[in-house]
Amino acid sequence: MRDVTHHPETGRTRRRGRITVWIGRALLGALLVASLVLGGTAFRVWQVALVDHRRSADMIVVLGAAQYNGDPSPVLRSRLEHALELYRSGLSEHIVTVGGNQAGDNYTEAQAGSMWLIEQGVPPGAVVEAEVGSDTLRSIRAVSEVAERRDWDSALIVSDPWHSWRCRTMAEDQGLRAMVSPTRSGPTEDVRTAYILREAAAMLFYRVMHASADVTGYGLG
């Protein structure tokens, strides 16, 4: 005759097994949802980057990037050249250069941009320096303060393509009517995928935390 006695240890083992399976499924589901959210956000970053929304605005905004003792880096120069083209096209009478400096710098990013534009023939009175901003959100807030002081409400923002959606969203959240006109000589192909994913993650962080999550590493600002 078989012994049909139920051992407590066997029951506990089965319960632990079921719990382990449930936890595994929950983690897999969470990873799947996270992947879908990140993928959808990355697609939106890519989608907005493809379109130039240039329109007339109260100001053309050049978001800062590295400068070397007053000489714009290649990334910043690309943005300035693009802003100069928009200015000469008559889309705005004012250009706002944005960006602070690092410890020991003689110039801010805003000053370097302003000097370059004036050297190209833009009247000094047409350039406004916003010498604040070590990340995108601080830069956009500095632009919002300039707009408030001058009673402006629209901005045509110049940055790199993959940065367009995030800076436009931040500007709109600051009450500006924002458009983006991205450069077309920005991030090279070898860093494009990494930059899109970085921007997608930064955008999700901003949506949740209402704070900036800028990460340096590619020299892209």
Results as ranks from 00 to 15, higher is better:
R2D: 13
R2M: 10
R2T: 06
V4H: 13
H6L: 13
P8Y: 04
T10W: 07
T13W: 07
R14T: 14
R15W: 12
G17E: 13
G17F: 07
T20F: 06
T20L: 15
W22L: 15
I23L: 15
I23Y: 09
A26W: 11
A26F: 12
L27C: 10
A30R: 01
V33R: 08
L38Q: 11
R44V: 12
Q47N: 04
L50K: 14
V51Y: 04
H53S: 12
R55A: 10
D58I: 07
I60S: 11
L63Y: 06
P72R: 00
V75N: 00
R79S: 08
R79K: 09
H82Q: 13
L86G: 09
Y87K: 11
Y87Q: 07
R88W: 00
R88Q: 14
S89T: 00
E93L: 06
V96D: 02
V98Q: 12
G100P: 03
A103I: 13
G104I: 04
D105I: 08
Q111L: 08
M115I: 07
M115T: 11
M115A: 12
V127P: 08
S134G: 12
L137E: 10
S139C: 05
E148P: 00
D151S: 14
D153L: 08
D153R: 15
I157C: 03
I157N: 01
R166S: 09
R166N: 10
R166P: 08
T169H: 03
M170N: 05
A171D: 03
A171N: 04
D173S: 07
Q174Y: 00
M179V: 00
V180F: 03
V180K: 01
S181G: 04
S185A: 11
G186S: 09
E189P: 13
R192W: 13
I196H: 04
L197A: 10
L197N: 07
R198A: 11
Y206D: 05
V208C: 03
D214S: 11
V215D: 14
G219T: 06
